[in-house]
Computed example of a mutant assay.
Amino acid sequence: MGGQSRRLAVLRAIVEDYVATEEPVGSKALVERHQLGVSPATVRNDMAALEDEGYIHQPHTSAGRVPTDKGYRLFVDKLSTLKPMSAAERRAIATLLDGAVDLDDVVQRSVRLLSQLTHQVAIVQYPTLSRSTVRHIELVPITPTRLMVILILSTGRVEQRLVELGHEAGEDELAALRVRINQAASGVRIADAATALSTLRDDVPHEVAGLTDEVVAVVTEAMSDHRSDERVAVGGAANLARYGDSFDSAVRPLLEALEEHVVLLRLLGEATTGGGVTVRIGHEGPYSELASTSVVATGYGPSHEAVAALGVVGPTRMDYPGSMAAVRAVARYVSRILDES
């Protein structure tokens, strides 16, 4: 192999060894552990060249070398192939996620699963209301003057509201209103559905105008409930205990960040689907105090539409191919559940 490709092979070996052993990697260990097909002197020269180019550096207390952010970046972009999920891992994903009873449960199970698969801190954003479409609106009479309004969204989210009516509503009135409301809102994005519903009373007979107003007001309020747009679930913080040697630089700032959901949402970044997994390494992230951590994230949602993001975050010394494969696999599975629900 040529000098450049051999140097890349040496870099890959350094990254893989450092992630696996947690120890800076020396030329002797590389020659022993990897069939690089060249002399130790050549490996030492390659390591010197990689160091000059900024891909590896020497921690001051050690003879070995460790990858820099730039080295990890090259590894992720050029050298890493995603590890396929094992049959056991795929079964674990299916078994755990298929048992979920509702959207909250899907999110909580996904976080647990991701942190178990990657041994990192997992973050799953709750699907944002603003990106959803209305699947169905149901009106259920409880008493003649009390209605349960159920709003079902494309993300699997369900909002329920009670309406106290000004006067009794007959079954025929309710049936007609149910049809009109669903004609206006079903399959429509939240913001557009709210607009369509606001013009509904102009088209209804005046004897049901009052009922229409009462129901539309409640549905619109349920649609504009943005509390969950800033919510994330976090799991696996205990995995950070494995990084005791980098506590001050990587672990402490990350533990503090886990308290701040807005910070975590920015860490995850913009959700994109289509199988793309985003990797932000060290200084590439949005926060300088988290410069010793990396984020592996992707979007998820029904029908290839990203309604939220999920991923893992941890010190830069992470198993990138394994983390990327797990993040992608869990996102695909959650998307499938949302498609079917």
Score class of each variant (00 low, 15 high):
1 M>S: 15
6 R>D: 05
9 A>K: 14
9 A>T: 12
15 V>G: 06
18 Y>G: 02
27 S>T: 06
28 K>S: 11
40 P>W: 06
42 T>D: 01
43 V>H: 08
45 N>Q: 12
49 A>W: 05
62 S>V: 00
64 G>T: 06
74 L>K: 15
80 S>E: 14
81 T>P: 00
82 L>W: 11
95 T>N: 13
95 T>S: 14
96 L>S: 14
96 L>F: 02
106 V>D: 00
106 V>R: 01
115 S>G: 09
121 V>A: 03
121 V>M: 04
130 S>D: 11
136 H>S: 11
142 I>G: 00
150 I>S: 10
170 G>I: 07
179 V>M: 11
179 V>C: 00
180 R>N: 07
182 N>G: 12
182 N>M: 10
183 Q>R: 14
186 S>D: 09
187 G>M: 10
190 I>N: 07
191 A>W: 01
191 A>Q: 10
203 D>G: 07
204 V>D: 06
206 H>W: 04
208 V>R: 12
216 V>I: 15
219 V>L: 12
222 A>N: 10
223 M>K: 05
225 D>G: 07
227 R>D: 08
230 E>S: 13
231 R>S: 12
242 R>P: 00
248 D>K: 05
249 S>R: 13
264 L>V: 06
268 L>F: 04
270 E>P: 05
270 E>L: 10
272 T>W: 02
273 T>K: 02
273 T>A: 15
276 G>N: 11
278 T>M: 08
279 V>A: 08
284 E>Q: 15
285 G>K: 08
287 Y>W: 11
291 A>F: 03
301 G>T: 09
305 E>Q: 14
316 T>D: 12
322 G>E: 13
329 A>S: 10
329 A>G: 02
340 E>L: 12
